[in-house]
């Protein structure tokens, strides 16, 4: 593994190794002084071309714990001014002696593009509507931790599947680890029939549900996606109220899901839209565990890519 660009191309062994490493590293976060010298002298460039406090903070924290230096560069918005190219910016920063690049960008494929042009590992921290691999890894770690296994679970993902890079990475990640993935949401935000062969990695392990209940029935894990009212000026849902009423997760789902089913969300949450306020008190919501596991998984990824093979 030279880069972490997507989950689609990872094999199960890679995922297992990262999860195992993350489990071992997580303990460091609970020490009185949460810091080890493992990556001392290495420097990591964090390039965020899209606003993101959580993911960026999580990567920064992971670097700090492992004693790697960070250089960070944020550009507001997604549109690059013509004339200054991303590749130029990155090559310049690379010349400062960077050992690894973490990139978040609103264009799908940008991490792949940079990986093709750079001689250092590249980590995708979310690209356009493509993938968000570290989010899927932390979701896997959270579920494995809480339920003890990833094999044979039913995972329901609810929301805008079409444009969600989190959903895409989760769909691949959970199936690779032996879970079945059911997705639901407004029909025009779900994968179309012709896309199913892409998402269905194993026969019968992926299903698109037009009926919310079908997706949630007996689910072990429920992942709610953040709803965006519009994307780049394209209105996606008629109103938050409409969405909350028909696709929001509220106590009514408790009759459908398995007892003790985990409730997850990649954050930030629109309470009252994709999750009703009552769900804040749901005893098996693990949203804060996801945050801690995010740091652990990112530590594992950095270590894996920087320790060299």
């Amino acid at each position: 593994m030279r880069h972490l660009l997507d989950i689609y191309h990872l094999n199960r062994e890679d995922i297992e190794e990262i999860l195992l490493l993350a489990e071992n590293l997580r303990e460091i976060l609970h020490r009185p002084i949460p810091k080890v010298p493992t990556l001392r002298g290495k420097s990591v460039l964090l390039l965020f071309y899209e606003p993101s406090t959580r993911t960026k903070f999580s990567f920064e924290k992971a670097c700090k714990v492992l004693s790697a230096d960070t250089l960070s560069f944020s550009a507001k918005g997604s549109s690059l001014e013509k004339g200054e190219t991303l590749l130029d910016t990155v090559k310049n920063l690379r010349a400062l002696g960077v050992d690894l690049l973490v990139i978040r960008h609103s264009f799908s494929g940008t991490p792949h593009f940079l990986a093709n042009h750079l001689d250092i590992p590249v980590v995708n921290a979310g690209d356009g509507t493509h993938e968000h691999p570290t989010q899927a890894l932390l979701d896997l770690l959270t579920v494995k931790d809480k339920l003890g296994t990833l094999e044979g679970l039913k995972v329901a993902i609810v929301g805008d599947i079409k444009h969600s890079r989190v959903a895409h990475s989760d769909i691949f990640g959970f199936q690779k680890m032996g879970s079945r993935v059911f997705v639901a949401g407004p029909a025009y935000l779900l994968p179309e029939d012709r896309e199913i062969p892409l998402y269905e990695l194993r026969k019968g392990y992926f299903r698109v549900c037009l009926n919310l209940r079908e997706a949630l029935e007996d689910a072990d894990v429920v992942i709610a996606l953040r709803v965006q009212k519009e994307r780049h000026g394209d209105p996606l849902i008629p109103s938050y109220n409409e969405y909350a009423e028909f696709f929001g997760l509220s106590p009514r789902i408790l009759e459908w899901i398995k007892e003790g089913a985990l409730l997850m969300h990649p954050g930030p949450i629109n309470w009252g839209v994709e999750l009703s306020h009552e769900m804040e008190r749901y005893p098996f919501q693990v949203i804060l565990d996801q945050v801690e596991n995010g740091v652990a998984v990112r530590m594992a990824v950095l270590l894996r890519l920087l320790s060299g093979e």
């Binding site: 494929g109 356009g128 509507t129 493509h130 895409h168 012709r194 896309e195 892409l198 394209d234």
Partner: peptide, 18 residues
Amino acid sequence: SRGGQINEGILSAKLGLR
């Protein structure tokens, strides 16, 4: 086709491109 990059289908879904 607004914002479209490649053929709509399995590959556009895989690459996350419109």
